[in-house]
Simulated scan of single mutants.
Amino acid sequence: MPAKPSSAPVSAFERGVAAPWRSTRRVPGSLTVPRAHVETVVVDGQEHAVKLGVFLSNTKSRRGKLAADKLQQLAALGLDWAA
Rank of each mutant, 00 (worst) to 15 (best):
G78D: 09
D80C: 00
W21S: 02
S23E: 07
R62W: 06
A19S: 08
G45R: 14
V54W: 14
V54C: 07
S30Y: 13
K60R: 15
R35Q: 12
V33K: 07
T40M: 09
R26M: 05
A19I: 07
S57A: 12
K70H: 14
V10I: 10
G16E: 04
V42G: 00
L79H: 04
K51D: 07
R63T: 04
K70N: 11
G64E: 05
D44H: 08
H37M: 05
L52D: 05
A68G: 10
V43G: 01
L52W: 08
E39Y: 06
T59G: 01
D80L: 02
W21V: 07
A19D: 00
V54H: 09
A12E: 13
Q73I: 09
V38N: 09
P34G: 08
A68P: 13
A82D: 06
A67C: 03
P2R: 14
R25Y: 11
D44A: 11
K51A: 06
V50N: 01
V17W: 02
K51C: 04
A12W: 10
N58V: 12
L56Q: 04
W21F: 03
L56P: 02
D69Q: 15
S23L: 09
G64K: 01
A67Q: 08
K65G: 10
W21T: 02
D44S: 07
S57I: 10
A49C: 07
R62D: 10
A76E: 14
A68R: 13
A76D: 14
S11P: 00
A12G: 07
A3S: 08
K65V: 15
V50Q: 00
V50Y: 01
L56M: 03
F55H: 08
